[in-house]
Design a binder for these strands. Structure first.
Lengths: 223, 223
DNA sequence: ACAATAATCTAATAATCGTTAGACTGAAAG
DNA sequence: CTTTCAGTCTAACGATTATTAGATTATTGT
């Protein structure tokens, strides 16, 4: 009798687990953690076609971890809550901690200590506040406007080359993007170092920052 | 070029997601969050046969979220770290928050406000410390010995009926077991109320308590 | 050495999932 | 009112996965 009920409970939780069991869906979730986006944008950023993106979004929607909103011809998807971004951060933290294969793969794109701990986050926050370092957000501008790390300045990777004169040469530049699997900040640091700036990247994105219990900033957005 | 690498990263995380996508595996994970157990025990507690349990454990082991240790004829499985219990707690918290179906199912086994928040946890901890309430752990004794809530007393559900005289009639009794999906504390409360005790249950187990950043206690164990 | 126990490994089946293609829907623009 | 655009829905395929049964391995007790 109670076994049926128990099974029902675990089945419901497994619905969310299933939603997290496909690489493409995880990639979409990470994109959605940067703010709401229409299907076409998600599809092109995840390098899949729209039909497949739509199918994956359906699974995520049925697990109730994303929601949709129509505006004109576009359908904007967003995470169903901040806790979903936290779950994604938690999931990849556990994977990074225990999967040697993931650690090896990650070590190919990152070089140093860009995995932050509680203390290094606080010290970064402190240095950013004092202006000792410049925190640089290299994601597309809409994502920055939606939410960004405290005191961060926005220069999207695509504009970085022609906006180098906005950056200081005497301060350390700390670049970040969407999270530990996002390559934009790596590319930004490579460019900056080649041009003689003192730059490094961190693996954190907004979701990781929030999951660590730290605040993020957000521009007032028109609705 | 970088797309392949990106896919590889998400694929690795999805391995952990896949491990969380089956109800039976989640049930096994919750059991393992109570302490290490041999395959046979896991199988009987999850009401599946040993072969199937072994197959599920293999998936969990390949996702590196559980580990195995042989002792004589038995192979004991355990979680690969506390972070895995935290991930499970996080997953079912998100599911409970967003899935209406799960909320409905849960409301059938629980009646009142047994979902704790940060403040209610702290106030419970405080009252338990002062002795204003008796926190009662109704899980099997080994699980209590492995880890239990602060100041909790152990009376396994199976022994509760004949050990009622150990319980106070003037204090409120707060029962808990393995987590929000575990029915033992509900049964304990039903029994206690019928016998005239002042009793209620909480949905927290050790994993939820730890995930909330609170300490748990543990008996010295022989190895 | 031999049987019993605890568990894994292999093979096979049924069910589910990822992916793609084609027909369809709802909103806007000519 | 037709066309176009953004996206969904349906159907279909091949690839995975869950589950079961049967044979096999490691350890202990006789």
């Amino acid at each position: 009798m109670s076994r049926d009920l128990k099974n029902l409970l675990y089945e419901q939780v497994a619905r969310v687990g299933k939603a997290l069991s496909s690489p493409k869906r995880l990639e979409i979730l990470e994109l959605l953690a940067q703010g709401e986006k229409p299907v076409e944008v998600l599809a092109s950023e995840a390098a899949i076609d729209m039909k497949l993106a739509s199918a994956h979004l359906r699974v995520l929607k049925e697990a109730r971890i994303v929601e949709a909103r129509r505006e004109g011809r576009f359908i904007y998807y967003r995470l169903a809550g901040d806790d979903v971004a936290g779950l994604w951060a938690n999931l990849h933290a556990v994977a990074t901690e225990h999967l040697v294969e993931l650690q090896v793969a990650l070590s190919q794109i990152v070089s140093g200590p860009e995995r932050l701990t509680g203390e290094t986050r606080l010290s970064l926050l402190d240095k950013a506040e004092k202006g000792d370092v410049l925190v640089l957000d290299v994601r597309p501008e809409e994502e920055y406007q939606n939410a960004h790390l405290p005191h961060a300045r926005s220069i999207p990777l695509s504009e970085l080359k022609r906006r180098l004169d906005e950056l200081p040469r005497d301060k350390e530049i700390v670049a970040y993007c969407r999270g530990p699997f996002c390559l934009m900040s790596s590319e930004a640091v490579a460019l900056l170092k080649k041009r003689g700036f003192k730059a490094r990247k961190i693996g954190d994105g907004v979701a990781e920052w929030l999951a660590a219990g730290l605040p993020v900033e957000s521009e007032a957005r028109s609705r």
